[in-house]
């Protein structure tokens, strides 16, 4: 898919997800793992999409919206991470190591989640006026007006996130790609492989840290013990039937 078409698809999907996330249905269609898998397909990087989606899903596994307490915006995090990574890729294809893309994207994503929480809170306070008007006059809010007030702003804001992070990614991709291929090898021949190795380690460590955050948020007795037993069991099965779980064809 050409980048312009992919960007348009991402923006449209982002609008739908923003509505699905809180206002309508809540059928988990806007969870990071789903967003990651879908945008991975859209941008032609299914492997990276799922890797980022899984890490962010683990990070947000225990965050809940209870009453007026708002969680970090998991949708903004996934959108920012995926479109930023795609922007980097589009600017300098084949230059960026997937694990480096992953680490940068997930870091940007969790920061955008905080911005998203602010935006959610603003949106909720914006709706107070509509509520007061409706209560005072004891009249209903027509469907179109309810949609304009409750669904349109989150959808437009998430589309803006897509545009912003894609631009950020393109800019950083051009700069970084140039630096990576021209300046860095001249600076130190040893540094390039070191950076590659470091980003591989970072990607794995961040996924495991996200799993640790998920475990501690589950709030049940013996969660860690259960996870440890399951990890041992999975290792045993993996070793016994080696290669069965390697999903990318070798």
């Amino acid at each position: 898919m050409p980048p312009a078409v992919a960007l348009l698809c991402t923006a449209l999907l982002a609008g739908f997800w923003a509505i699905e996330r809180k206002a309508f249905l809540q059928a988990m269609l806007s969870r990071p793992v789903v967003v990651g898998a879908c945008l991975g397909l859209v941008w032609g990087t299914p492997c990276l999409g799922i890797a980022i989606g899984c890490a962010l899903e683990l990070f947000f596994l225990g965050e809940v919206n209870i009453g007026a307490a708002l969680p970090g915006n998991d949708l903004w995090a996934s959108l920012a991470a995926l479109t930023f990574a795609s922007g980097l890729n589009a600017a300098a294809p084949e230059t960026w190591r997937p694990s480096a893309l992953f680490a940068l994207a997930v870091t940007l994503g969790v920061l955008f989640a905080r911005l998203g929480r602010r935006a959610d809170s603003l949106q909720e306070r914006r709706c107070v006026r509509l509520c007061k008007q409706s209560m005072d006059a004891a009249c209903r809010v027509p469907t179109a007006r309810l949609f304009l007030a409750g669904c349109a702003p989150p959808a437009l804001m998430s589309m803006a996130v897509v545009a912003l992070t894609f631009g950020l990614g393109l800019g950083a991709g051009h700069l970084g790609g140039h630096f990576w291929t021209h300046a860095l090898p001249r600076f130190s021949a040893d540094l390039v492989p070191r950076l590659a190795r470091a980003s591989d380690l970072t990607a794995l460590a961040m996924t495991l840290a996200a799993a640790a955050i998920a475990l501690s948020a589950l709030d049940v007795a013996r969660a860690r013990l259960t996870a440890a037993i399951a990890a041992l069991l999975a290792t045993a099965i993996f070793v016994a039937t080696r290669g069965l779980f390697i999903w990318s064809a070798t």
Binding site: A196, A230, A231, L232, W247
Partner: peptide
């Protein structure tokens, strides 16, 4: 979560680095 953490550690190359891509 535990099973995922184990599997992702056992097969990270397939997960993070598509063969032939990147440095």
């Amino acid at each position: 979560v535990g099973a995922f953490a184990a599997l992702v550690s056992l097969a990270p190359p397939a997960f993070f680095c598509a063969p032939g891509k990147g440095l």
